[in-house]
Computed example of a mutant assay.
Amino acid sequence: MSQFDSIRPYQDSEVKSTLKRLINDPEFTSTLIKFRFPRARGAFLALTSFALRQVLKFKVRNVNKVYDFQVMVERYMAHMVKTTTSQLSSSGLDHLDLSKPHLFISNHRDIALDPAFVNYILHNNGQDTVQIAIGDNLLTKPWVADMMRLNRSFIVKRSASAKREKLANLKELSAYIQHTLNETGDHIWIAQREGRAKDGLDITNSALISMLALNKPKEQSFAEYISQLNIVPVSISYEFDPCDLAKANELVEQNEHGEYQKQEHEDIYSISRGIVGQKGQVHVHFAEPLSGEYESAKEVAEALDKAIIGNYQLMPTNWIALGDAIPEGIPANELANAKRYFEAKSRDVSAEVRSQLYAMYANPIKARQQLSE
């Protein structure tokens, strides 16, 4: 049994059995149907579930490897990009030696799409896809875990409460990441912090860097170990966030009541909303790998913040939300579209939610301005 069996992605030998388990899971098929037909019940749900299972069996009949599954997913990803974005662009890849495995650390705005866009861009540039770090808090259903691990996701165990167990999980994760980079030779994607930046402020949690360093040999310097990880800061910019109102409502509730109670499986619905919602322009920038004589996790986190915030592509929505002088060169029609977007979004919400909505879009500019001070 492998040292990392409890957290690693599924392997080729596990693909067929996992797909069979998924297709025969009534909750999996009914969930897919309810995304399209929310009120599906009784005989209609049973009939459509049966039909869906037959369709799925046909679609995956030739899926024997993880690569086959990802090729199938790529077709749906291409359709999503075509129908929900006005433009997907990238920059910085030409500065990377992708023959070496890299640890991509990005800002975190969307649960599923952040790594999906990184994967899609790498794939379209002739590169292998990344292994994706995903928190076990998202794996509320067995079928969700199966889907994620089929798509090369590995599990970050966050549910432990005892300190000893937490430390053991962190050490396992640190060892797995180093093993994957050095032995397997795969790229890895991980978010700069747990949870999405709902307020639009992309700040790296230095605890992430401390976790990465848990597997550092005693005789090796901290700076050398960090350098060998080939950490690439990644900035993912969305013109429109399909989950923006939900995020604004959550932040307002936290401010007013001190906490926010998530609904059951709320993250799964956020994933769905992010996938199907309109995103406008999306840009992904890959910075050069971190290099420096870093002496602490805090210094590495600050370097990540500087690169991620500094390379975030500011959108018309950011400038309209800020409300200050708008720089020249932004097309007037894009600014007008951004203004209409906010007018439509804030039409039926409270003043507090409206203020929070504008703030989350304005914050990337404010963060950039603070960098230059």
Rank of each mutant, 00 (worst) to 15 (best):
A332I: 12
R53D: 05
S99W: 14
V232D: 01
G195R: 10
I209H: 03
K157H: 12
D324W: 12
S355A: 15
F240G: 00
V252D: 02
L201Q: 09
F50T: 08
Y10C: 07
K306V: 12
A287D: 01
F222G: 03
D267E: 12
F4H: 06
P233L: 09
A162T: 15
T83M: 11
A351Y: 11
A116W: 00
Y76P: 06
Q127H: 10
H265Y: 14
S372T: 12
R347V: 14
T184R: 09
N337R: 09
H285L: 08
R196I: 04
I105M: 04
P142A: 03
E288R: 13
S90G: 02
E264P: 07
S13L: 13
V60R: 06
N62R: 12
Y120T: 03
R41V: 08
H79T: 14
G310N: 05
S270W: 03
I365E: 04
N182F: 10
G258L: 08
Y341A: 03
P101H: 00
P38T: 15
L173I: 13
K218M: 01
H187C: 07
S210A: 10
M315W: 00
G292E: 06
E74W: 01
P233S: 13
A367D: 08
A133N: 03
A51M: 12
N24V: 07
G329H: 14
V130D: 02
I155L: 00
E259H: 03
L113K: 04
N363W: 03
A307G: 08
R164W: 14
S270E: 06
D25H: 07
V71R: 15
I190Y: 04
S237N: 13
Q278A: 05
S49G: 11
H257P: 00
I23T: 02
K366G: 04
P38H: 15
I121V: 08
S2C: 14
Y120F: 08
A168W: 11
Q87L: 09
Y269P: 05
K34L: 15
P364E: 03
Y176W: 11
G195Q: 12
K298S: 12
A51S: 08
K20E: 05
L181M: 09
S49W: 02
K218L: 04
A78Q: 07
A297H: 00
S235G: 13
P327Q: 15
L52R: 00
D348R: 08
Q11V: 04
S235K: 03
K100R: 14
V353E: 06
L150V: 10
K166N: 12
A46T: 08
D5S: 11
N337P: 02
S291W: 06
D97K: 11
N62V: 06
D186M: 02
V60E: 03
L52S: 02
Q369M: 13
P327I: 15
A367S: 11
Y294P: 02
K141H: 07
T83Q: 13
S206N: 05
R347T: 14
V55M: 04
E256F: 06
R8D: 10
I177D: 04
H187G: 01
E343F: 10
A301K: 01
G258K: 11
